[in-house]
Simulated scan of single mutants.
Amino acid sequence: MRAVGVTRFGGPEVLTVLDVPDEPLGAGQVRVRVRAAAVSPTDTHLREGAYAGRDPVTTPPWVPGMDAAGEVVEIGPDVDRVAVGDAVMGIVVPTGAHGGYREDLVLPAASVARVPAGADAVAASTLPMNGLTARLSLDHLDLAPGSVLAVTGAAGAYGGYVVQLAKADGLTVVADAAEADEQLVRDLGADVVVRRGDDVAARIRAEFPDGVDGLADGSVQDALVLPAIRDGGRLATVRGYRGDGSGRVEAFPTRVRHYAENAGALDRLREQAESGAVTLRVARTFAPEEAPEAHRVLAAGGVRGRLVITF
């Protein structure tokens, strides 16, 4: 089976098309013929070797990718969520050669859901990881309907899903955006849009002088955004930031691995995609041989929607 991965860590140029063996199928698992795998910043970190210390596999190759979509070609014992032939999307926790950038992929049945009605594999591959990350952040924040949530990086994949899921939860959303992205962020559902930048906390406070109840920091500004949050408010982060230690704001690092087998949350995302509550956004597709270019495009910034490798 073809895969895109690395045999040594480094820049985008180390990505190459590899031949990898099929993975064994066990109880409670499904085999997916992957048609599309979305590209994320986590993939670039894996490629660079940032996770080598936590990966129990110490020999190459290593295959990135946390999102995949395709068709079920085999199911193991004790699987009743999906059937052979179903179009599915899934979240992947990469380990060694087990990653989303491969044609044949075995996943826990709880990590897959049917593709939203009306969506193809490319569009569906953009939802699982970032959608579940956004859902987990909101679950950490646990804000009551009517509360005010701020979102940084709102035009990005994670931030966009946070905005849409927060609106579905009945929250008031203030989000940041560059001038070119303001209409996009409004279209996603933000009630108030402020200009992005290092002074975003002051801009949010200008709109909500008492501070917001919670903030999801998709732009990874960490301490810079803390002043926007009221005393006793909550912060959801995506790179492990735990706050300034003052106790004024409670910080929740969001680790999507904790939701990788949350079948209920994944099914709910499918339903919300079908209803239009969340939007599947594809920016560009790439052949497996073009994976290095996909990583370069992502690193250059400004991507709106997801980059997707197609098999």
Rank of each mutant, 00 (worst) to 15 (best):
V92T: 02
P108D: 12
M129N: 12
L136Q: 14
V148K: 13
G118K: 04
V115P: 13
V92E: 03
G146F: 09
R114L: 15
A113P: 08
A124M: 00
T152R: 01
I91N: 06
V106T: 07
P94Q: 05
A134T: 06
V151M: 01
P128S: 02
G153S: 02
V151N: 01
P94W: 06
A154F: 10
V122T: 15
L143K: 06
G96K: 01
L149K: 00
G153T: 00
G159I: 07
V112H: 07
A154M: 09
G118L: 04
V115Y: 09
A144Q: 14
L132Y: 04
L136F: 08
S125R: 04
A124S: 01
D142N: 14
L143G: 10
H140C: 06
A109H: 11
S147R: 15
G96L: 01
A157Y: 06
A157F: 05
A97G: 14
A144M: 09
V93E: 05
G156N: 06
G153F: 03
D104E: 15
A154I: 11
V93S: 06
N130K: 13
L141C: 11
G96M: 02
P128V: 00
S111H: 03
S125C: 05
T133Y: 00
T95Q: 14
A117I: 00
A97D: 15
R135N: 09
V151K: 04
R114Q: 13
G99M: 04
E103T: 15
P94G: 07
L138E: 09
G99A: 02
V93C: 04
R114D: 10
Y101N: 14
D139Y: 01
R135L: 12
R102A: 15
I91P: 04
A154V: 11
G118T: 02
T126D: 07
G146L: 09
D104I: 14
A157D: 10
L105N: 09
Y158W: 08
H98V: 06
A110E: 15
L149E: 01
L132N: 03
G99V: 07
D142C: 09
E103D: 15
L132V: 03
G131L: 05
M129D: 09
P116N: 10
H140G: 00
H98T: 04
V112P: 04
N130D: 10
G146E: 07
R135M: 09
V115W: 09
P128K: 01
P116V: 11
A157L: 13
A97F: 14
A124C: 03
M129A: 12
I91E: 07
A113M: 01
L143W: 06
A134Q: 05
D120F: 13
H140P: 02
L138I: 11
N130C: 11
E103N: 13
P128M: 05
R102V: 15
P145C: 12
V115C: 10
D120A: 13
M129S: 11
A124V: 01
G159L: 09
